[in-house]
């Protein structure tokens, strides 16, 4: 009955790739940073969108996060994976920006926007099924936007970005037990909110 686990499992290949990528960046290879964007751009954009609530803000946040990554990539020590390092910068930046300018919760209005992002379609599903799934997804996102940020972050990292508990602990700088508790509380609050919607 367990879940399928992380969407992006960490492999030795990833770690070797991380080290090589950062080394190339340190040596001035501009292509290396491009590859960092290639690997993490979509993840960070989606994370920013889930935390910010709209695509325009997510694009701004993604841009700022990648500039920060560019500035600090040379100091990446290789003691964690590049993925958790990147997510850590992203989370810290989103917290900073969103806590300054935005209320703790915000409605999801991204679906009303056109042309500011491209939805990744699942080729295995028909149009009707896709429409139902999209509707369900919108409902869940609306509920999630009302979950307090501290729990929302944990749920987004786990259920939408597929990070393991250990990875989330690294990203958030807390113990695994705290991650477990935050995910559970976030899901429980989301359940209550979804029940109210029905």
């Amino acid at each position: 009955m367990g879940s399928e686990g992380p969407l992006y499992p960490v492999t030795h290949h990833d770690v070797a790739l991380d080290v090589e990528l950062v080394e190339r960046h340190r040596c001035g290879d501009l292509q290396a940073f491009d590859e960092v964007y290639e690997r993490f751009g979509e993840m960070i954009y989606n994370l920013a969108q889930r935390l910010a609530g709209n695509r325009e803000e997510a694009a701004d946040l993604t841009q700022e996060i990648f500039l920060r990554i560019y500035r600090h990539l040379g100091s990446f020590g290789g003691r964690s994976t590049l993925k958790t390092w990147v997510f850590r910068i992203a989370i810290n930046h989103c917290r900073d920006r969103l806590s300054r300018h935005y209320p703790a919760t915000q409605s999801i209005d991204d679906e009303a926007e056109e042309g500011s992002g491209v939805t990744i379609a699942d080729p295995g599903r028909g149009p009707e099924e896709l429409a139902v799934a999209a509707d369900e997804g919108r409902r869940v996102m609306e509920g999630l936007s009302k979950v307090p940020p501290v729990f929302r972050e944990a749920v987004v990292l786990r259920d939408l970005e597929g990070l393991s508990y250990e990875e989330i602990a690294e990203v958030l700088g807390v113990r695994v037990g705290t991650v477990r508790s935050r995910i559970a509380r976030g899901r429980e609050q989301l359940r209550v909110l979804l029940e109210k919607q029905v």
């Binding site: 751009g41 954009y45 989606n46 841009q63 491209v118 369900e136 997804g137 869940v140 259920d159 899901r187």
Partner: peptide
């Protein structure tokens, strides 16, 4: 079952690709 439904619902949230122009903007800023 309720908790499982919540997790399944989160699994139905669609992923969105970043706007194609974003990469170029970041390149220019870098």
């Amino acid at each position: 079952d309720d908790m499982q439904r919540v997790i399944s619902g989160l699994g139905r949230v669609e992923r969105v690709a970043p706007p194609p122009a974003l990469r170029q903007q970041i390149r220019q800023q870098v």
